[in-house]
Amino acid sequence: MNVPGTWAGLFSAEWGEDTHARELMKRFSPIALTKANTPVQYLRTLADVLASLIVLTGAEEARAAATPLVPLCAAGIEQAGGLFDSVDPPRVALQVLSFVNAAEACGAAQGLVQASPAKAWLEALAKKVKKLDDVLLYRCGLVALCLGEPDLAAKLVGGGKLPETLTPGERFGFNVQGFVRYLATAMKVGAPSEAVRPAWESFVEGFPKKKAADQVSWSDLLWAARAYFVGVEGRPVARVGESLHALVKPD
């Protein structure tokens, strides 16, 4: 069965992604807790699972699922940093960080992303962008936005220096690079949320098709939601998950 290209399809009982996410969290969380000295493997595996649970079921259920794993997050970030210069470091580190972001977005954790060495990771990657694929760089750009670093986000996704003004109401369809740069510009110039909302809503609207094409992940959507809801609208991080769920849940 192909990945649905619509929100109705992603929420459908026939597709059953919410049920699958529940089962994976239930299956792997107890194992992760018995492997507390090596949390990276399980946190990176569960990052997208937790993100999908937040989007499809809401923050309350996701928070209950994530809370037992929160004590592993700090050690997971530290270990991921230690792996940064070996194996497939950017993906490992960002997947672990994405789990932590999801935990914060549903209110199970707080302050860990901002306290992490993620900015240093991204600055290191920004020096070798030509060696990295676009999908990874776009994810890095979203993370940079969530760290309050719009210029770093622009450097990661490319396209040159950010414009000094924002054109209100733009939409970017499948152009993730353009969307990241637009949010970065919005943050830098302090644009009102009404000017930026059409770009955000079009990104959300197009997410199922982008996901079906393997261009973005559930974790990417959650990073984008944090960048918009916190960085542009000024909402608390802990409200990001519920805000996103309310936006995408079919009537």
Results as ranks from 00 to 15, higher is better:
Q177D: 07
Q177R: 13
Q177G: 10
Q177S: 09
Q177L: 05
Q177T: 12
G178V: 08
G178E: 13
G178C: 09
G178Y: 06
G178D: 15
G178N: 09
F179E: 15
F179N: 12
F179A: 10
F179T: 13
F179V: 13
F179Y: 14
F179W: 10
V180T: 11
V180G: 08
V180S: 08
V180N: 08
R181N: 02
R181D: 03
R181E: 01
R181K: 00
Y182A: 11
Y182C: 07
Y182W: 08
Y182R: 09
Y182M: 13
Y182F: 14
L183V: 08
L183T: 03
L183A: 06
L183C: 04
L183S: 05
L183Y: 03
L183E: 03
L183D: 02
L183Q: 05
A184P: 00
A184G: 04
A184R: 01
A184W: 05
A184I: 07
A184C: 01
T185M: 06
T185A: 07
T185N: 02
T185H: 05
T185S: 02
M187Q: 15
M187F: 03
M187H: 10
M187T: 11
M187N: 08
K188R: 15
K188L: 09
K188G: 04
V189D: 09
V189H: 02
V189I: 08
V189E: 06
G190W: 02
G190D: 06
G190A: 03
G190F: 03
G190P: 05
A191S: 09
A191N: 10
A191I: 07
A191G: 09
A191E: 06
P192C: 07
P192W: 11
S193A: 12
S193C: 06
S193T: 09
S193N: 02
S193E: 12
S193F: 04
E194Q: 12
E194C: 05
E194N: 08
E194S: 11
E194L: 02
E194Y: 10
E194P: 03
E194D: 14
A195H: 06
A195G: 01
A195R: 01
A195V: 04
A195W: 05
V196E: 08
V196Y: 08
R197A: 14
R197G: 08
R197Y: 04
R197H: 02
R197C: 02
P198D: 15
P198Q: 15
P198A: 15
P198L: 13
A199S: 12
A199I: 13
A199V: 12
A199D: 14
A199E: 14
A199L: 10
W200G: 10
W200L: 15
W200H: 11
W200M: 15
W200E: 13
E201H: 06
E201M: 14
E201K: 00
E201W: 08
S202Q: 14
S202H: 14
S202Y: 04
S202E: 15
S202A: 14
F203Q: 15
F203K: 14
F203Y: 15
V204D: 09
V204F: 00
E205L: 12
E205K: 00
E205C: 07
E205I: 07
E205W: 00
G206I: 07
G206T: 10
G206H: 12
G206E: 12
